[in-house]
Amino acid sequence: MKQRLERDVIGMRAAKELQPGDCVNLGFGLPTLCALYVPEGVRFQTEAGLLGYGRLVMADEVEKADWHYIDASGRFCTPGLGMAIFDVVTSFIMIRSGRLISVMGGFQVSEKGDLANWNTGGDALGGTIGGAMDLAVGSRRVIITMDHNTKDGGYRIVKKCTYPLTARECVDLIVTDLAVIEVTPKGLVLKEVAPGWTAEEVQELTEPKLVIAPDLKEIEL
């Protein structure tokens, strides 16, 4: 059985997409890992109205937890140097005007870049939207980090999403435990594969036909 990438390696690879000066909103779960590996000078935003918050409060310093400073995934954070505080209208103008990069989790991504990441139940009560729809539509770049397949081996990168959509044609890059795939007008371009995996093996585990990048390589961190 070949090794798939560990979760923190997915986070590390996604973090490589971020440059000093970028302002980034990190979604719940896997994307939070990116924060550990980003270059200095990347600033983080939460929809609640903080830009440039500091490190997260960990288990050995619970007394530092302050309800006034919470990150985008609901964890306590510390006020960062140069942090700005603002209301939610300002926050979503930041998001919708393309000033932010968004790293989110995903349940499914389609070959056109449609994203389903808020709901597995089917109706309005089956999930929580929060800021996800705004982030998907408005961000300058949408990076999705997720497992390449479902727990029982099913496709997550699909021809058409079967879960309720977050937004249509919004995803730019997918980073999984097997591959890095770019969404382009010509289709999904396989750019990198996990060490030891071939393009054919990744294709087997992906529903839509992948375009193999001429410079396909192993994932570099």
Binding site: E47, V88, V89, S91, F92, I95, R96, A124, L125, I129, G130, G131, A132, M133, D134, G138
Partner: peptide, 12 residues
């Protein structure tokens, strides 16, 4: 009745 929408939509 339950009406859901994105958070930015609520703000707007």
């Amino acid at each position: 009745e339950v009406e859901v929408m994105g958070h930015g939509t609520l703000a707007a």
